[in-house]
Design a protein around this nucleic acid. Structure first.
Length: 799
RNA sequence: GGGCGAUUAGCUCAGUUGGUAGAGCAACUCUUUUACACAGAGAAGGUCACAGGUUCGAGUCCUGUAUCGCCCACCA
């Protein structure tokens, strides 16, 4: 018997070496697997953030997926588990920007786009190895030869291709619509990334002509010239739709128009409201229904525009009390509720408070019909049908209801982001200015005076100089145009001037004439047309756009690769229920349109890992259990089991260190069972199994069969429970105890028979436990006499 | 406001088509020349949230109530 069995199982001395053996065997790669394997089984790893570290949620995901992969590999399938990491666009860029500011006191505008991207690349390269090694520590049998990164060259190509195809099918369009604008991160945010947070504010009731209107946001009220009420509201039946009323408002007399619309809740407040279409989705829709004017009141930075009169140029936060004070003086405040509790929209990706803005952005049309297989369908329909036709099933199944509910409420998906790190939109513009970004116009003399520049040549030199210092490559972005005494400057240019302290918001808002957006000649494609003067859209794509391609971009799409033919659709997509909509639904959308197929056949949703009290693990609560600490202390096998047992699909897992410790004991139990059996087989050499000992094997097989059924139903929790019960309470406590007298008895034939039966039962147990506890089982396997190949490719001991 | 879950031993959770309540952990008693004290043997622990109903029979099916959780929407 090997020396090591005289001591308790030592995971630290074992796990590293075992993983190395697996990797060296090449068996993680389906092309190297022994025997003839026809049936494929594939999973793509939901790619963790490249700059992140492993947390318990990842650990749970890895445990489940590795169990499924190892189980199917042992069942003789051609198994592929594709590793990858995600660029996590916004999160990563913010992180690098933070570092930049902390170490060099610079913003991204100081260093410029190209330089920032270089810094991000360096940062991600450096941290990539951390997460990749942590994935290995869990024992994950990922095929590293197929490792992918969302921002690598092939994936970039796939994203470009997808965009172009969807654009050509009319499913991607550019439109001016109200979007969720994050003034802190200066980018749009998709509907799904918004998180509502409760907040207490003052709620003001204002006298608005004969009406009383309420608001928590007086600073948006400058543009309000429509007063809306329900058509059936008897209190206001004397007022007619379209009727005009003169009244006194914040900055003097205005004329308001009565609008009757059913969107108004008669029960709320006075049943009358004014609308701010440019900064509220509901108001925007009312305005569109009635063809009303839509006026922007607040700019991208939260600064009030000239429409605010004397308040123009102020930040909304500062302006609010001043506006309230003015209304108070004018006697227009009826009353104020100090403690009004309401929800405000925030950017869940660490951003600020969402300020709806009307912006020109790129969208995916989910309700637009296109031709497919001789009929007209919409993306929404396709997403719905994938489940209705049972091409995809979700475990646990009640999530299917939630999925349908989400689809039904789905609006067009805003896919453009104003951050720099990400897949850049493959669209090119050509105007005399180089793009059709937003521009602001000024009177020529005001600007030349402000910057101390006397003529156009001086301005040109000034710009060129600025250009060099700021590192911008494309001169066209920085320059504006002068014509008819008006200077037109791009937002990007203005931002640079602001950072240099040459202009400030106050001045801009007082001197601007208007804003414009020029139509440009447009080309959609990865590369610009051959002639010069084309300028690429500065925006990048929503990170979920590229994530949506993940099941097939990782397999080489758009090329017709062998991998794509063999492994797509993937067998199972396993992820947390928290990204069902972000990711799962979008993969169904993308795969449906681009491949006319589903991305996976089965969705398995695991729960979230919480602490022992059921709270989310967070830094602020200080209740984070680090999977690597746990692996260090108790071994990866124990960590895996602790995340599987008691975790029914979709249920949250309450994890405590005690649980992990408990499963370390189980690893040791198996270790000692082996020691006992090796001992026995040395004392009583393995012989022919007599009929009276056959039951030991039969019973073992039956337990494994039961576990197999559970795994097939994705009840890994029950499967491991079955095996645990059998091994500990039945095999160790009863069968081994009963065997002792037989092994030491006078009947040598019986002793050999029993010893043989136990040895065989042990091999079955080891094989059955291997997907769950790969390290300890593989280590024991290597010490059993007569075993040549690795346990990971041994045949599964049940049908 | 709409939707989806949950409520079973001190804690965490199983409980397949209805047939006398299960596991792990913790706690209790005993056991150490025993494969394993990271152990074994034993005992204890439950009005299955509550109230009705269907049934020969309900933790399981139906109705309602309460509490907790999550998702979606959102009121100016």
């Amino acid at each position: 018997m090997p020396e090591k069995f005289t001591k308790p199982y030592d995971h630290k001395a074992t796990e590293g070496a075992i993983y190395q053996k697996w990797e060296e065997s090449g068996y993680f790669n389906p092309d190297n697997l022994p025997g003839e394997r026809k049936e494929p089984f594939s999973i793509v790893l939901p790619p963790p953030n490249v700059t992140g570290t492993l947390h318990m949620g990842h650990a749970a995901m890895l445990a489940v997926e590795d169990i499924l992969i190892r189980f199917e590999r042992m069942r003789g399938k051609k198994t592929l588990w594709i590793p990858g990491t995600d660029s996590a666009a916004i999160a990563t860029q913010s992180k690098v920007e933070d570092i930049l500011y902390k170490t060099e006191k610079k913003t991204r505008h100081d260093v410029g786009r190209e330089d920032l991207l270089k810094r991000i690349d360096a940062f991600t390269d450096e941290s990539k190895s951390t997460i990749v090694n942590q994935l290995r520590r869990m024992g994950s049998s990922l095929d590293w030869s197929r490792y992918t990164y969302t921002m690598d060259e092939k994936r970039y190509k796939a994203v470009m291709e997808a965009f172009v195809r969807m654009y050509n099918a009319g499913l991607i369009y550019r439109g001016n619509r109200i979007v969720n604008w994050d003034p802190k991160l200066q980018t749009t945010v998709s509907d799904d990334e918004i998180e509502y947070k409760e907040q207490t504010d003052s709620f003001y009731h204002f006298q608005y002509g004969p009406f009383v209107i309420g608001t928590v946001r007086p600073e948006t009220k400058f543009g309000d010239k429509y007063v809306v009420m329900h058509p059936n509201d008897a209190r206001y039946k004397e007022y007619a739709h379209g009727q005009q009323i003169d009244l006194e408002w914040i900055n003097g007399p205005i004329t308001a128009t009565i609008i009757k619309d059913e969107a108004v809740d008669m029960e709320f407040g006075s049943g009358v409201m004014t609308i701010t279409p440019a900064h509220s989705l509901v108001d925007f829709e009312i305005a569109k229904r009635h063809g009303l004017d839509i006026e922007t009141v607040i700019d991208e930075r939260g600064i009030l525009l000239p429409i605010a009169g004397e308040f123009a140029g102020q930040h909304i936060k500062k302006a609010r009390p001043a506006i309230v004070e003015k209304l108070q003086k004018k006697g227009l405040i009826v009353k104020t509720d100090e403690k009004y509790v309401h929800n405000i929209a925030t950017n869940s990706r660490g951003g600020g408070i969402i300020e709806p803005q009307i912006k020109r952005q790129w969208f995916v049309a989910v309700n637009k019909e296109f031709e497919r297989d001789g009929r007209f369908v919409t993306l929404k329909q396709m997403m719905r049908e994938a489940l209705e036709n049972k091409k995809i099933s979700i475990t646990p199944d009640h999530f299917e209801k939630i999925y349908y509910h989400w689809i039904n409420n789905l609006r067009d998906w805003c896919i453009s982001r104003q951050i720099w790190f990400g897949h850049r939109i493959p669209v090119w513009y050509k105007t005399e200015l180089g793009s059709d970004m937003e521009a602001i116009h000024f009177k020529e003399d005001t600007l030349t005076e402000k910057l101390g520049l006397t003529d156009e040549k001086a301005f040109d030199r000034f710009s060129t100089d600025l250009l060099e210092k700021s590192g911008w490559k494309d001169k066209n972005i920085l320059w504006g145009s002068i014509r008819n005494g008006t200077i037109q400057l791009y937002i990007g240019y203005i931002n640079v001037l602001k950072q240099k302290g040459l202009l400030d918001d106050n001045w801009i808002n007082q001197n601007r004439i208007n804003k414009s957006q020029r139509e440009a000649e447009m080309h959609v494609g990865e590369k610009p047309p051959a002639d010069i003067g084309w300028y690429q859209d500065p925006d990048t794509l929503d990170t979920w756009f590229s994530s949506g391609l993940w099941t097939f971009s990782t397999l080489g799409w758009p090329e017709e690769t062998q991998d794509l033919r063999t492994f797509h659709p993937t067998s199972v997509l396993e992820t947390g229920y928290d990204i069902l909509f972000f990711w799962v639904a979008r993969m169904i959308l993308m795969s449906g349109f681009l491949l006319n197929d589903v991305p996976f056949k089965r969705v398995y949703l695991h729960g979230l890992v919480r602490d022992a009290q059921g709270r989310k693990m967070s830094k602020s609560l200080g209740n984070i259990i680090d999977p690597l600490d746990m692996i260090e202390k108790y071994g990866a096998d124990a960590v895996r089991l602790s995340l599987i047992v008691g975790a029914a699909p979709g249920n949250d897992i309450k994890l405590s260190e005690d649980r992990v410790r408990g499963y370390k004991h189980f690893a040791n139990k198996i270790w000692n069972i082996t020691r006992f059996i090796l001992d026995a087989s040395e004392a009583a050499p393995v012989g022919k199994i007599l009929p009276e000992d056959q039951s030991v094997i039969d019973e073992t097989k039956q337990a494994v069969q039961e576990a197999t059924t559970h795994i097939e139903k994705f009840r890994l929790d029950l499967a491991v429970d079955t095996l645990y019960q059998f091994v500990w309470s039945r095999f160790a406590d009863v069968i081994l105890e009963e065997s002792k007298p037989l092994l030491r008895g006078d009947d040598a034939q019986r002793a050999s028979s029993r010893s043989a039966a136990l040895t065989q039962a042990l091999t079955i147990i080891l094989a059955a436990l291997h997907p769950f506890m790969p390290f300890v089982t593989e280590e024991i396997w290597s010490s059993l006499p007569g075993k040549k190949d690795l346990l990971m490719v041994e045949a599964w001991p049940a049908k």
